[in-house]
C-alpha cells in the first residue's frame, strides 16, 4: 500500500531530525507520589469509604450503601423507582446469576452479541448495570475494566448506569490503583475511571448532565466488612 511507503519515508525524516538535535537524555527517577500527596491528604478522621462517598456525591453520583446480602433487594427497589424498560447486563459476569434471579426476565437484556448486532437495542436501552474493579477514594471515581463479559458500552450508552462497588476494593487514588494492579506490565485493552455521570458545560458554561454518556450514575456500595 502506498501510504505505508510514504509513512516510512516520513518516519525516517522525522527520526533523522529528532536525532540530529543536541540533547541530554535524562533518566532521573521521578517521585510522582510525593508531589501528589498534598492533593490526596485525608481530612482528619474520615475513612476511605466516607471519603469516596463524599466525593462521588459531589460529582452527582447517587450512592446507595448496602451489603452483600442486600444489594439485590436494593437493586430491585431502585428498578421499581426508576422503572427502566430494560436493564442491560453482561452475561457471564460475576453478578449475572444474581441478576437473573432478581430482575424480571422481560426487563433484563443480556449484552450477549457483538455490538454491531446489538446497536439498535443498546442505543434504545434506558439502563445498564456493571460491576467495577474498584473505586478511588480521593476523587469518588469508579475504576472500571470492561471485559468479555461486560463490554465498554455497557457503562456508556444507556442513560442510567448502575454500578456495583465493593467497599473492600476502594483504593486511595489513581496512582495507588496503578501500583496495586501492576498495570504497567499488563494493561487491559480498556481501563476507565468514571467520576459521576457524563456532563458538558459547552453552552455558556452551564453545567448539564447527560451529554453523550449516562445522565445518572447510581453506585451500589457493598459493605463487605473491610472498612479502612
Amino acid at each position: 500500500m502506498s501510504a505505508s511507503a510514504e509513512s516510512l519515508r516520513a518516519r525516517s525524516a522525522i527520526f533523522e531530525r529528532l536525532r540530529a538535535a543536541t540533547r541530554d537524555p535524562q533518566n532521573t527517577p521521578l517521585d510522582v507520589s510525593a508531589a501528589l500527596l498534598p492533593l490526596l491528604a485525608d481530612p482528619v478522621g474520615e475513612t476511605r469509604t466516607e471519603r469516596f462517598i463524599r466525593h462521588a456525591r459531589s460529582w452527582r453520583a447517587e450512592v446507595i450503601e448496602t451489603t452483600q446480602a442486600d444489594w439485590p433487594e436494593a437493586l430491585q427497589a431502585l428498578l421499581r423507582a426508576r422503572a427502566p424498560r430494560q436493564l442491560f447486563a453482561g452475561p457471564g459476569s460475576e453478578i449475572a446469576a444474581t441478576l437473573a434471579a432478581c430482575v424480571p426476565p422481560q426487563q433484563l437484556r443480556w449484552f450477549d452479541r457483538e455490538i454491531a448486532a446489538l446497536k439498535p437495542e443498546l442505543f434504545a436501552a434506558d439502563a445498564g448495570i456493571t460491576t467495577t474493579l474498584g473505586g478511588l477514594a480521593a476523587s469518588g471515581s469508579l475504576l472500571v475494566m470492561p471485559t468479555i463479559a461486560e463490554p465498554r458500552t455497557l457503562s456508556l450508552v444507556p442513560p442510567l448506569h448502575i454500578a456495583l462497588l465493593h467497599e473492600s476494593q476502594l483504593q486511595d487514588s489513581l496512582l495507588s490503583a496503578m501500583w496495586h494492579y501492576g498495570w504497567a506490565s499488563a494493561m487491559p485493552s480498556n481501563l476507565l475511571t468514571i467520576t459521576g455521570p457524563s456532563k458538558t458545560a459547552d453552552i455558556q458554561r452551564m453545567l448539564v448532565y447527560g451529554a453523550h454518556g449516562p445522565r445518572e450514575l447510581v453506585i451500589l456500595l457493598v459493605q463487605d466488612g473491610v472498612r479502612s
Binding site: 492533593l39 460529582w59 476523587s139 471515581s141 489513581l174 494493561m187 487491559p188 485493552s189 480498556n190 481501563l191 476507565l192 475511571t193 468514571i194 467520576t195 459521576g196 455521570p197 457524563s198 456532563k199 454518556g213
Partner: peptide, 13 residues
C-alpha cells in the same frame, strides 16, 4: 479535580 472519564486504551478489541 477530575473529569468524568479517564479512558485508557491499549490496543484494539
Amino acid at each position: 479535580a477530575i473529569t468524568t472519564y479517564l479512558n485508557v486504551i491499549t490496543g484494539p478489541r
